[in-house]
């Protein structure tokens, strides 16, 4: 069984969500960008020590 592998990345802020996705080689509709219980669009700019979670959308079943 494969369990989701988690990786942690750090970026210099301010940086937009779109730029982070580009650097990680994700297309915007391949992942959910999650902060708390909200989703962030590409234009959102992250500042200081903000943390986000990125989840791929592909089904595994």
């Amino acid at each position: 069984m494969t369990v989701d592998k988690r990786e942690i990345y750090s970026f210099d802020t301010p940086i937009s969500v779109g730029k982070i996705l580009k650097r990680l080689n994700f297309l915007p509709f391949e992942v959910l960008v999650i902060k708390g219980n909200r989703l962030l669009t590409r234009d959102v700019v992250l500042r200081d020590n903000e943390e986000i979670e990125i989840k791929t959308v592909y089904s595994k079943g």
């Binding site: 069984m1 494969t2 369990v3 989701d4 989840k55 959308v57 592909y58 089904s59 595994k60």
Partner: peptide, 21 residues
């Protein structure tokens, strides 16, 4: 797939997230 994932996230659906071995 993206829209379905967004829906599942918004609705808080608890689904299997592991791959069939």
């Amino acid at each position: 797939e993206y829209e379905t994932s967004v829906y599942a996230f918004f609705k808080g659906l608890d689904f299997v997230d592991i791959e069939c071995p």
